[in-house]
């Protein structure tokens, strides 16, 4: 059955989307605001922001509109904008806006691969049939997946999708990789602290720490979680390690996950992030690396595989 990108049920239909460049700029503005410790109610000067972001005022105005639509900025009667919330509490902006057909096909391929709806061996023609899009759109999607190291050319017309990135074991293998690499990144001789970024990230984490189990903002946590791990990769001072880690983190935050941690675990995880940042700020990198090892091990989902009345305990082995 052909699954058009628009889908028989309109699966990918969404309301009119903002321009991707404006969303990206809006995200950049948020980061700049955090670095400058801006707070709720503070006005944003259009020209100053344009200078910081190295763009003209017109896209800045558009980006302000994006932020206002998401409730982050308020537009005053005189047309100026101010923060409606403390920017440290802003979640990451959805960057799926203004997606191209290639983006949609790429996302659908990954989603369907993760859900075992398609096999890991495909051809352009088979994907074209499934998604009802042009040959060019499929080719471009595969090229993009190839650039991201998520697909590679196989024999003849075939493409091999890298199922190890999305299968049931991918989470465990990801933790294994991170356990080896992230403490290493923290102890690289050229590790350079980005104190401004650390300070701004800590503010967001402290905002999370002030929340309890009933009002914990999981989306804000997702943002700080990603920013935290990528910050460490960026700061490590070794371009090879940085590249490997950033690529891995980008992929793991973008792909579907089969891990559903409870809110309490996320709260603990936030506290662990803060503790690691504190040690980085103090220059205690070995201690930070040790805390990172603990953090990653605690984050591994461990559940009994088989449980029930009368099930012998030796069967209830756990998986990681």
């Amino acid at each position: 059955m052909k699954q058009g990108i628009e889908g028989e049920t309109g699966m990918l239909k969404e309301p009119k989307k903002a321009n991707r460049r404006h969303v990206e700029l809006a995200q950049k503005i948020l980061e700049a605001a955090n670095e400058r410790a801006m707070t709720e109610g503070e006005r944003l000067a259009e020209q100053a922001i344009a200078n910081i972001c190295n763009v003209s005022r017109t896209p800045v105005r558009k980006a302000f509109q994006v932020l206002a639509e998401r409730g982050i900025l308020l537009r005053d009667a005189d047309g100026s904008y101010r923060f409606a919330i403390d920017p440290v509490k802003a979640v990451r902006l959805d960057d799926s806006s203004d997606a191209t057909p290639e983006d949609d096909v790429r996302a659908a391929i990954l989603r369907d691969l993760a859900a075992a709806r398609i096999s890991d061996t495909q051809t352009v023609a088979s994907l074209q049939r499934r998604y009802g899009v042009t040959r060019l759109a499929v080719q471009n999607s595969l090229m993009k997946l190839s650039e991201e190291n998520l697909a590679e050319r196989g024999a003849g017309q075939q493409w091999l999708l890298k199922q190890f990135t999305v299968n049931a074991d991918s989470g465990a293998k990801s933790y294994e990789f991170r356990l080896a690499m992230e403490p290493l990144a923290l102890t690289m001789p050229d590790f350079k602290r980005d104190t401004t970024a650390i300070l701004s990230l800590r503010q967001s984490m402290l905002a999370l720490r002030a929340m309890d189990e009933t009002n914990f903002d999981r989306r804000l946590f997702q943002r700080t979680d990603m920013d935290f791990h990528i910050l460490i990769a960026k700061c490590c001072g070794n371009p090879f390690v940085a590249e490997a880690l950033i690529s891995h983190h980008t992929r793991r935050f973008a792909l579907p996950t089969n891990v559903h941690p409870g809110t309490f675990r996320l709260m603990q995880s936030n506290t662990e992030h803060i503790q690691i940042l504190e040690q980085i700020e103090r220059g205690q990198m070995t201690l930070a690396a040790d805390l990172m090892r603990v953090h990653i091990q605690l984050s591994q989902a461990v559940r009994p595989r088989l449980a029930g009345r009368g099930v012998p305990p030796s069967l209830k082995m756990t998986t990681r």
């Binding site: 699954q3 049920t9 699966m11 189990e213 999981r218 559903h260 088989l306 029930g308």
Partner: peptide
Amino acid sequence: RQEGEYQPPVFAAHNDGPLVLTSFGSLGAM
């Protein structure tokens, strides 16, 4: 109990249809 909010995944068909959960517990899934 209290659990975090669950966001259903995007389905490739009938993505607006009613959601049905099937779970037979760990023993039943065998």
